[in-house]
Amino acid sequence: GATAVSEWTEYKTADGKTYYYNNRTDESTWEKPQELK
């Protein structure tokens, strides 16, 4: 099967917290998305 390329990108805020942003859905989350686990 084809490997899905994750749409999630990991970013850090100014105070060093990590969050994740999805370019396709324009969604952001503090929790690590399922695709990255």
Score class of each variant (00 low, 15 high):
1 G>S: 14
1 G>M: 14
1 G>V: 14
1 G>F: 13
2 A>V: 13
2 A>P: 14
2 A>M: 14
2 A>E: 13
3 T>E: 11
3 T>Q: 14
3 T>W: 07
3 T>M: 11
4 A>V: 14
4 A>L: 14
5 V>Y: 12
5 V>L: 12
5 V>H: 11
6 S>K: 07
6 S>N: 12
7 E>V: 06
7 E>A: 07
8 W>Y: 01
9 T>L: 12
9 T>R: 10
9 T>I: 12
9 T>N: 08
10 E>L: 03
10 E>Q: 06
10 E>A: 05
10 E>M: 05
11 Y>M: 15
11 Y>A: 07
11 Y>E: 09
11 Y>K: 14
13 T>R: 02
13 T>V: 01
13 T>G: 08
14 A>V: 11
14 A>S: 09
14 A>Y: 02
14 A>P: 12
15 D>T: 06
15 D>G: 06
15 D>R: 01
15 D>L: 04
16 G>P: 00
16 G>K: 01
16 G>I: 00
17 K>V: 05
18 T>N: 07
18 T>H: 06
19 Y>E: 05
20 Y>M: 00
20 Y>K: 00
20 Y>D: 02
20 Y>G: 00
20 Y>N: 00
21 Y>F: 05
21 Y>N: 03
22 N>V: 01
22 N>C: 05
23 N>M: 13
23 N>Q: 12
24 R>K: 13
24 R>W: 14
24 R>D: 08
25 T>S: 04
25 T>E: 02
27 E>Y: 03
27 E>I: 05
27 E>S: 05
28 S>P: 01
28 S>Y: 15
28 S>H: 15
29 T>D: 03
29 T>S: 11
29 T>L: 06
30 W>E: 10
30 W>K: 04
30 W>A: 06
31 E>S: 07
31 E>M: 06
31 E>H: 06
31 E>K: 05
31 E>P: 02
31 E>N: 06
31 E>C: 15
31 E>I: 11
32 K>Q: 08
32 K>R: 10
32 K>A: 06
33 P>S: 01
33 P>Y: 03
33 P>N: 02
33 P>I: 03
34 Q>S: 13
34 Q>C: 14
35 E>T: 05
35 E>M: 05
35 E>G: 08
35 E>H: 08
35 E>R: 03
35 E>K: 04
36 L>Y: 12
36 L>G: 10
36 L>T: 07
37 K>V: 14
37 K>M: 15
37 K>Y: 14
